[in-house]
């Protein structure tokens, strides 16, 4: 009896959650879809952002996200490999894993401040694409490392054994057996991190994003516009709220669709891998 009740409770909460997500997306869709057009996506804003499109914000988000992934990828993969394949002291691994998870839970505005004092001020990159991408890469690094460790540890020991019994060194085994076997899971981790990086506002607030820019960024050291910050700016500043709010909803819809698309891609890849590489015979 109690168990049935519990099951019902879990189910209701689950459906409530789904409903909430649908409500939010639906709300933004209704408010935002009218304004979306190719023109909206590919023109510059004008008339103090009360008209025109979101092109520079889209470009800015694209650049920030891709750069942050490029910066996070090598140290992330190397750290995960080191922790999963080389460190033998179990206590040390646990301590490091806990630290990584803690880092993943730190509010992103803290990373924003860190990025500001380190990249903007200390290294003197200024408020720029570069500072923002570095800051974002630090934000996604912990999740990316944990997901990659998980991907690596899902590769069965028997495969490593097979490789080493054929005379392969550890490094060769990692390069030719472990990494290829974990590849699609690592891809999933990358895509999920991309989604996270694209949606973050706080880390770029003081490090990269500007309210308005006449031209597209022309170097790593120029500041950029970015979708999340653009929404924030449209809603809080400016002279014609009634016009700006519509644009903000349009931008929010574009951002949501982008992130949902990335997450679906990740899920799709994961399912595909399940079908082809089922490690449990």
């Amino acid at each position: 009896m109690k168990k049935v009740l519990f099951n019902h409770a879990i189910k209701s909460i689950f459906f409530l959650n789904i409903l909430l997500v649908i409500l939010i997306v639906g709300f933004i869709f209704i408010k935002g879809y009218k304004i979306i057009s190719l023109k909206f996506l590919f023109t510059m804003p004008y008339n103090s952002m009360t008209e025109g499109g979101i092109f520079p914000a889209l470009v800015g988000t694209f650049l920030l996200t891709s750069l942050s992934i490029i910066f996070a990828l090598p140290p992330g993969v190397i750290t995960a490999i080191y922790l999963n394949e080389y460190v033998k002291n179990k206590h040390l691994i646990n301590i490091i894993k806990i630290s990584i998870n803690t880092l993943a839970g730190v509010p992103s505005v803290v990373f924003g401040l860190f990025g500001f004092s380190v990249f903007v001020k200390f290294f003197g990159f200024g408020v720029s694409l570069l500072s923002g991408a570095f800051t974002l890469s630090i934000v996604i690094l912990p999740i990316f490392i944990s997901a990659t460790i998980e991907a690596l540890s899902a590769v069965p020991y028997s495969l490593r054994e097979a490789s080493m019994a054929l005379g392969a060194t550890k490094l060769y085994t990692i390069r030719h057996t472990v990494l290829p076997a974990a590849f699609s899971s690592i891809m999933t981790a990358i895509i999920l991190s991309t989604g996270r990086a694209a949606g973050e506002t706080a880390p770029i607030l003081f490090t990269a994003a500007v309210f308005f820019q006449k031209n597209l960024p022309d170097s790593l050291f120029s500041p950029v516009m970015a979708l999340p910050y653009h929404i924030y700016a449209l809603m809080t500043e400016g002279t014609h709220p009634e016009k700006q709010v519509a644009i903000a909803y349009g931008s929010a819809l574009v951002l949501i669709i982008t992130v949902l698309f990335l997450i679906s891609l990740a899920v799709f890849l994961r399912e595909k891998r399940r079908r082809y590489v089922n490690f449990k015979h």
């Binding site: 069965p156 495969l159 097979a162 490789s163 054929l166 392969a168 030719h176 076997a181």
Partner: peptide
């Protein structure tokens, strides 16, 4: 060199998640 001279087949079949060709070529490439 020892493991090239002394091969091993395990209890559970453990082919690599690669093609049949690549599986057998693995030791040669090593």
């Amino acid at each position: 060199d020892l493991r090239r001279r002394v091969g091993m087949v395990f209890q559970k079949p453990n082919p690599f998640p690669k093609t049949i060709m690549e599986n057998i070529a693995y030791g040669l490439k090593v």
